[in-house]
């Protein structure tokens, strides 16, 4: 993983060289990213209750997500409309900005007994990609630990309905989880992730 991180920094440096030469009319990363704060919080840490924190996000996952919104491959209320306002280069700049911010976690309500179940299910089904209890942004997975509960719930609703496509690995694990635990298992996972400080 370390090697990958180093590579990312090198790419990032490379990016900034290209971008400063390429277009004088492109805003800086902070100029672009500051416009997101109205919904996602200052520097990308949301105070809730529903809009997700995007601080600390994996650079690649951010880019992939924005491209998916842009091409209507991922459902959303408003992001499909907003993502269309940015070029590939601008999205990359914002991705760099938010990936360097600290994810600030706020207290949420949760059910302690569900958290306990969720913790076990996480280890069994999710840990392999969502490392470190869902805290890690490596492997380009979304950060789940401390993410806002309604957002996690909406995401699972969209995966379940098929409106949002799961990666093969995830689908396989989700099918297994649902088969053995049903919707209660998903609910327990959501409680586990949103309880994490």
């Amino acid at each position: 993983m370390k090697l990958k991180r180093h590579l990312q920094y090198i790419l990032l440096l490379f990016d900034s060289v290209i971008s400063s030469a390429a277009m004088a009319e492109t805003p800086t990363a902070s100029m672009l990213a500051n416009t997101c704060a109205g919904c996602h919080g200052t520097n990308g840490s949301s105070v809730g209750p529903a809009s997700p924190t995007i601080a600390g996000i994996s650079r690649d996952y951010f880019i992939e997500t924005m491209e998916a919104y842009k091409n209507a491959k991922r459902p959303s209320t408003i992001m499909t409309r907003i993502a269309k306002g940015y070029t590939k280069q601008e999205i990359e700049l914002m991705a760099g900005f938010f990936s360097r911010q600290k994810f600030i976690r706020y207290d949420q309500q949760y059910d302690a007994s569900k958290v306990k179940v969720g913790k076990k299910l996480h280890k069994k089904y999710c840990q392999k990609c969502h490392e470190d209890g869902g805290r890690s942004a490596e492997d380009d997975a979304g950060i789940l630990a401390g993410q806002w509960e309604p957002y996690l719930r909406y995401s699972m609703e969209d995966f379940t309905s098929g409106d949002r496509t799961m990666e093969k690995k995830m689908k396989k694990k989700m099918d297994l989880l649902k088969k053995s635990q049903g919707d209660k298992g998903v609910d327990a996972l959501i409680h586990f992730y949103s309880s994490q400080k």
Binding site: A37, C39, V47, P49, S51
Partner: peptide, 15 residues
Amino acid sequence: REVAYAHSWFNNITH
């Protein structure tokens, strides 16, 4: 969901 996001927007923009 738009209502939940409106409330999130309110909290985040004021913060």
